[in-house]
Amino acid sequence: MRRLVAITGLVALVAAIVTALSMAAPAGKTGSQATLPPKPRLPALPGEVRSRGKFLIGVKCDFPPFGWQDTSGRNRGYDVDTARQFAAWAFGSRSKVDFTCTTTASRIPTLQSKRVDFIISTLTWTAQRELTIDYSLPYYGAAGKLLVKNSVIVGRLNTWMRGKTITTTPGSIYDRWIKNCFKDTTLLVVSSPSSGVLAVKDGRADALMFDDAFLVGVAANAPDLRLTNHKFLDVPWGVGIRKNEPEMKRWVDTAIRGMKARDLFWKIMQRTIPRRFYTTFKQNVPRPKNTLKYPRGTVPESACPS
């Protein structure tokens, strides 16, 4: 009996502290966020998903820091945390989501064959892809960067690229951009970004052209490699949704808008990358005052720098 009293007392004490802290927190905040309700008003999910009681979402498992598995087999990363936020809002728990690992090549087939509800798997917007699937509002704005050896000086991109060997992954936006715009550049296509890093280290390629989010981590950790200042092909990523599923698209869009208004994407990004990269990535995530837009009506990979 005495123990019961002690436990009750302890619980009450903890509850009091938590309440006090949570009441104090909003008071300290200013601006629009403080007035937002904790959860946006979300439309109804499609019946099938609602009755299942959890999401089935396709993510990358080989693409740190967006979708990867840590050494204990847990799905981690920016895309995965976005999915978990969706689950929390839809079903009240961050764990009400089953992940399916997709690769770059398998993600759209995985979506089309209804194995998953939608895919959050580093999917860059392209006009051609939008013919076969729908995109949600953008949830991340990737940009292309060049990874080179420390000793390499890159001047104007156009002049420098001539006669160089550039490596990237097949089917990527960079692959098409180089083919379209840099006819005098040798393209070395490699199966994964990590083999691109090796190609630069070994001197088989002069530079690896890839997403900044991947390269920043590499450059920070490899003493012999660095990123140049060029930034190109900043095309946002979106959640991939099957065509003709307006309910699903409306739900995902509302959730993304809600996360943007509450600055949750930035919170996730802060968990995803080390503090020293914060300034680099501030512009890449949708925030209350940072709206990303797809370059609809243009073909970014055909726009050549002059």
Partner: peptide, 20 residues
């Protein structure tokens, strides 16, 4: 296919991936 050599299967694979 896995090393990015554009042999027959890899070509068919990439066409399928874009057009289903």
């Amino acid at each position: 296919l896995v090393v990015g050599y554009a042999e027959l299967t890899a070509v068919a694979y990439s066409i399928q991936a874009n057009t289903f």
